[in-house]
Amino acid sequence: MDTPSTRAEFEERLNYAREHLNNGIMQFAKGLRGPDSLLKVRYLPNGRIDFLSVDEMARLTANQTYQMRNMDFGEMLLDDKGR
């Protein structure tokens, strides 16, 4: 997995995941902490993300969501014979 190397990259991933969650593009099974963690991320007065409010679940969800942004899930549904 490609991990962010700068604060700007990490904020981009968190904002990307939060936007997908708010727009209903990303959904979670009932009882999972993913959406709660992303929605609890706070912003500083200058508009930057308060990293003290980012827990491990929010970080993992943001990185995974961003990493999967260009995946073709249609290919994943096909078996080895192309069906």
Rank of each mutant, 00 (worst) to 15 (best):
G24S: 05
L52Q: 11
G31Q: 10
F51L: 15
K30G: 11
F51W: 13
A58L: 02
E12N: 09
I25H: 14
D55A: 01
A8F: 09
E12F: 05
D50A: 10
E19F: 04
L32R: 11
N70A: 00
E56K: 09
G74M: 03
N22Q: 10
M76C: 08
M26N: 01
G34A: 15
G31F: 08
R48M: 07
I49W: 02
Y16N: 09
F28V: 07
E75I: 03
A17W: 00
D55C: 05
V41T: 11
I49A: 04
V54Y: 08
M76W: 11
L32A: 04
R18K: 15
A58W: 02
K30Y: 10
N23Y: 04
I49S: 08
E9M: 03
S37F: 01
K40T: 07
L77N: 05
Q27R: 15
G34R: 02
A29Q: 12
R33G: 03
R42M: 02
R59D: 07
E12W: 01
P45K: 07
M26K: 06
R48Q: 13
R33S: 07
M76Q: 09
G31S: 12
A8R: 14
A62S: 15
F51E: 11
R59P: 00
S37Q: 02
N46S: 12
A8P: 05
L44S: 13
G74Y: 02
R48L: 08
R59M: 05
N23P: 00
M26C: 04
S37A: 14
L21P: 09
L78Q: 14
F28G: 04
E75K: 09
G34S: 13
Q27C: 04
T61M: 13
E12C: 01
R18N: 09
K40Q: 13
K30H: 12
N70P: 00
V41M: 10
N23L: 09
I25Q: 14
Q67D: 07
R69P: 01
Q67K: 07
L21F: 11
L60H: 09
T61R: 03
